[in-house]
């Protein structure tokens, strides 16, 4: 039971006409989309376009005001939180802890949804935790206090905890936005390695279009709570889409060195 990726036919998530708002202001309006298994999705759009809200709806932290969300063919509301936690893990943008928990202990927390109330981690769990820490290159930090690590190291711990959950889907909420390029690429690389090797589905809210181009198979562009455009990265990462979503002039070309599309921007005239 625990940790086995569900192999059910049909879409992983199905969102039908989903709307959500805080107070009277809609954050997400009439959103319909199907997420498929084993794919790396990038959710892109300007600040406040509804990216985080979409992720919160997907993992059941928010309940839509109208519309339906099905996960593995079952309404999301029918999933027990622990059962859902065995399938879906979330890595937030920042990982702030005021207490000096050790890195190992934080990663071990990822096993929580797999344990009974009075059950403790067994040898298999410890092995898994060690493997995940090695995968994220934090095995050397296992006994360090997590609140003394650098931002990049902390995010590795957060990703390791999410992977220790053995989810079939990983949601990244701007998980690498605050990191330097080394940590960003190595975290995204580790996650994509998982996706390729074990069929992990990844849905990542991102800001950096070039990182999205390198990391994602498919892109969704949001603007003001609406899904403007979606499709395979090579098809939808176009200057006209970028202009429409962000209001920025850009050039998109295949880059031999990066081995993927890359975007160059031009600053608005007169500002520099």
């Amino acid at each position: 039971m625990a940790g086995r990726p569900a192999r059910v036919s049909g879409a992983l998530w199905r969102l039908d006409d989903v709307s959500f708002g805080y107070g009277r202001k809609p954050v997400l309006a009439n959103f319909s989309y199907q997420f498929e298994r084993g794919c790396c999705y990038g959710v892109l759009g300007p600040n406040g376009s509804g990216k985080t809200t979409l992720l919160d709806l997907l993992c059941g932290l928010l309940v839509p005001e109208s519309g339906a969300i099905l996960f593995n063919g079952r309404p999301l509301a029918h999933w027990r939180p622990r059962a859902l936690a065995r399938q879906v893990a979330l890595v937030p943008q920042e990982f702030m802890v005021d207490f000096d928990f050790s890195v190992r202990m934080v990663v071990e927390m990822g096993r929580y949804p797999h344990l009974g109330r009075f059950e403790d981690l067994d040898g298999r769990d410890h092995g898994l935790v060690n493997r995940v820490m090695a995968e994220l290159a934090i095995d050397g930090l296992a006994d360090r206090a997590v609140n003394q690590l650098s931002g990049g190291e902390k995010q590795r711990v957060a990703v390791a905890r999410a992977l220790a959950q053995q989810p079939s889907v990983l949601l990244l909420d701007e998980a690498t936005s605050n990191l330097d390029i080394f940590h960003t690429l190595s975290i995204l690389g580790a996650v994509r390695g998982r996706a390729r090797a074990q069929g992990l589905t990844v849905i990542a809210a991102m800001h950096d279009l070039n990182q999205a181009a390198f990391f994602c198979d498919r892109l969704l562009f949001l603007n003001q709570g609406r899904l403007l455009c979606h499709g395979p990265t090579d098809e939808v990462l176009r200057p006209d889409v970028i202009d429409e979503v962000y209001g920025v002039r850009a050039q998109v070309a295949y880059n031999d060195f990066a081995k993927c599309l890359q975007v160059s921007f031009r600053a608005p005239e007169g500002d520099c």
Partner: peptide, 23 residues
């Protein structure tokens, strides 16, 4: 004492605690 494990997880952030299946 019964909920001390959940308390540890909640001390590392409400949002991720909820996605780990804690009410």
């Amino acid at each position: 004492l019964l909920f001390s494990r959940e308390l540890n997880i909640m001390a590392t952030g409400e949002r991720t605690a909820a996605t780990l299946g804690i009410a």
